[in-house]
């Protein structure tokens, strides 16, 4: 399944730094997201866009991860040549990650 099936996301910008949240629709899916959406995987996915380090913060109380990506906005929102200077569209690209459905916890119906 896709990450988009179990999580939602929003991108923010500050200077040349982009942050992307990944939030479980159902907090029961948070451990699955935590296990499979790693900083390395995000850095690999965005290797053409993000040139600096990617740091992941966990916020289990809301079932969310926050990725902070440096050198991600073409030198900074205010001088970037990119069409999407703010990198606002990055969140949607991240949600296309493949997540193994077999790892999903069994839930009561």
């Amino acid at each position: 399944m896709k990450l988009r099936d179990i999580a939602h996301s929003r991108t923010g910008d500050k200077g040349d730094i982009s942050n992307i949240s990944v939030i479980a629709f159902d907090e029961a899916d948070y451990p699955l997201i935590e296990a499979h959406v790693t900083a390395d995987r995000v850095k690999e996915l965005f290797h053409e866009v993000v040139h600096g380090e990617v740091v992941r913060y966990t916020i289990p109380s809301v079932g969310a991860l926050n990725f902070v990506m440096r050198q991600a906005l073409g030198g900074g929102v205010t001088r970037s040549l990119a069409l999407d200077a703010h990198g606002k569209c990055l969140a949607s690209a991240l949600l296309d990650l493949e997540i193994p459905a077999t790892d999903r916890p069994v839930r009561a119906t």
Partner: peptide, 12 residues
Amino acid sequence: KEQLLYEIHDPA
């Protein structure tokens, strides 16, 4: 939740 993490780096 989306707005909580909007333009946030270290949430702590």
